[in-house]
Structure formats: C-alpha cells, structure tokens
Write a protein that binds this DNA or RNA. Structure first.
Lengths: 190, 190
DNA sequence: TCGTTCTTGTACCGAACGGTACAGATTGTT
DNA sequence: AACAATCTGTACCGTTCGGTACAAGAACGA
C-alpha cells in the first residue's frame, strides 16, 4: 500500500474546502475521501474521532490563520489604520472576493451550532475585539469603536451571503471598500 | 384513518421552521414528519415531489409574506421614510430579533444553492430594489440609494449570522437601529 | 346504504450514511 | 534480512436516508 500523505496537516486545506462547500452534515466521508484522495482507513488513522475531529482540526487551522494574519496585527501593529486596511485586503483574498464562504459563519447558521458553539463564539469575538482595538488606536472613542467593529464583522458575513445570493462577484469588494471608508473616516488618509 | 390536516398550507409554518433550523439536507423526512405531525404517506400526498416540492412551497410562502409585508409597501407607500421604518420593525419581528434564521440566506450558503438559485436571487433582488426605490423617494440620489440598499440587505443577513455566532440576543436590534439611522439620515426625523 | 374519493399509517425498498475491523503493503531501524 | 511501526484499501457493520406501495379508515354524495 503506497503512502500518499505524510502529515494530516497536508490534507487540511482540502478538508476545509469540503466543509465550506457542503457544510458539516453535507460533507460525507465518501466526499471527503474523494476530495482528499484518502480512503476511510487513512482518514480514521489521522482523525480517530471521525468527522467531528476533522472539523475541529479545520477550525484550528482557521483560528491559527486568522490569529496570525488578521487578529494579531489588528491588536499589535503600531500603525492601526494601516493594519485595518491590510486586514480588509487579506479578508478579500481569503474569501476569494466572496466566491469562498466562511466556514464559521456556515456552522453558526446550521443545526450543528451547539456542537461548535464555543469555537464559533470565540472566533467572532476575537475578530470584533481585535478590530475594535485597532479602531481605538486610530482615535475612535471606545464605544464607537465597539459599534463599528460589531458592524464590520456582520457586514463581512452578510456580504458573503449577499454576493452568493445575488451572484454578483464584485459585491464583496464593493462592500469592503465602503467598510474601509467608514472605519477610517476619522483617521488620516493614506 | 383520522384526518388531521385539511390543506397543505396548514403545515407550511412548521415545515418552514424545520428547514430553517436544519437546512435543506438536514431536514430529514423523519424530522419533518415528527414536527408536522404527518406521516410519510400524508407528506407525499400533499407534496408528490418530495422534499424539493416542500422547500419550494415554503419559499413560495416566504416570497408572498415579504412581497406583501415588506417589498410592496417599500415600493408603493407614499410616505417612504415611514415605510422604511415599518419594514425594519417587521423584519425584526419576522426574524424574532435574530433568534430565527433567514431560510433564503441559509440556502444561499449551502450546496443546494444551485437548485434554488433563481428563487434566492430574485428574493434578494426584490428586497434590495424595493428598499432602493423607497430611498429614492425620500430624496436620496439613485446611485447612493442602490449602495445603501445593497448594504442594508447584507447587513441584515450578517446580523443574523453574528447574533447567532456571538449568542447576543440584542445584537440584531442594535444593528437594525443603526441601519435605520443610516438609511434615514437625509430625511426628516419622525 | 353503498360506492367513490380523499387521506393516512405502515411496511418496505435500494442506496448512502458514519464508523469499525483488519489484512496487507510500505517504510525506517537494526 | 528481519522487525516493528506506520499507513492504506476493502469489506462490512447497523442505522438512516428519500421515496414507493398499498391497504384501510374517514368523509361525503347518491
């Protein structure tokens, strides 16, 4: 029997895409096997806990990506306005201008929300608070920053839904641009 | 065999709730039967086309509700600002302040999007255009109205995702209030 | 009272589901 | 060369899936 994959991290991207496209329940083991190129044997070797462990591994990777690429810069970057601009650019790239969906958002809407409630909660919380922190550092008042951040997080999720529903590939970009304008309205222009 | 339901319209509300809570694929016939109180025999008597026909019937009802309660008033009500305010109030009531989810939005994110693509598309289009029409009548320029309307529709969807993700029962209301402020910024106060 | 039509519960179908068991192939170490 | 550890394909488990078939009960006009 030939070896194909050395580490389970190697298949996480494919795994994530399956969950994104089909949701937790819609991602059958047959589909996962097909898209990752691994049989059930291998899948259960890497993920003894089955689908739930697979989903958690994917969520781990997503958490890690957003933490290093989005959340931490927003919290720590000295030039907060630049960090906000960069985070919106990275967000656009990550979601492929709306062609890709947010797995955490999908899980939040589905009936598996309770199973992953804590992870979903902390992901959204981290995003909102990191953005609020950056806004405060651009000179926005605490309360206003919290409102704007909450709005921004919802806007991004809503833009993903709307861009798919309206099948408008440019809607996501438009929305992010307007969002940038509103978030940085008080700070100096680039 | 006792008769329970006279018309299939009688079970649409329960049917809609099952689809909302579990998505299209997650709504199994067993679950539907349990929640509607009907056996498979009755379900297939009322909906010979199976689940797909059930979902379409639910979407029909949703379309109808929004058309009469939200879209038409937005397009036709002489006092456009009042119509916008009323539509946001009705939206809050319909989605139970975020505790209820938008079935059309859920379908848009899932892998069944293609099967219902046209209905999803026209629902979002109708909402956006009706709102834009009302905004124009309050004195907002055409282009600005289109932007605001697009933003509002996305915001509502995003607020549903965020309120569930953050498990914050007041988020949806806050968001609608801010939305009302932005949409009616140019018109006379109530 | 008798059919006829409408409605319903139940048994059942093949397929697909998530998950398990395990033998055999590959690999690295000795 | 021989060994254990690692990996993987396949067959199989019980359950649930969407959907079909159908007999029997209720309603109702004749």
């Amino acid at each position: 029997m030939p070896r194909i994959v050395a580490e389970r991290a190697d298949i996480l991207p494919a795994l994530a895409e399956v969950f994104r496209e089909h949701g937790y329940e819609g991602a059958s083991l047959a589909l996962i096997g097909q898209r990752t190129g691994l049989g059930k044997g291998s899948l259960y070797h890497f993920f003894p806990g089955g689908k739930e462990e697979m989903a958690n591994a994917v969520l781990d990777e997503i958490d890690g990506w957003f933490e290093t690429r989005i959340f931490r810069p927003l919290r720590e970057e000295p030039d907060a306005a630049a960090a906000i601009r960069a985070s919106l650019r990275d967000t656009d790239a990550y979601f492929r201008s709306g062609r890709r969906v947010c797995l955490v958002g999908v899980l939040a809407l589905g009936d598996v929300r309770d199973r992953f409630a804590e992870r979903i909660h902390s992901y959204f919380l981290a995003w909102r608070d990191a953005l609020a922190s950056a806004l405060v550092r651009t000179g926005v008042a605490q309360e206003m920053a919290a409102s704007l951040a909450e709005e921004a997080v919802a806007m991004i999720q809503g833009a993903l839904v709307a861009s798919r529903a309206l099948q408008d590939s440019e809607l996501f970009g438009r929305m992010l641009n307007r969002l940038e304008g509103r978030l940085l309205a008080g700070s100096n222009p680039r």
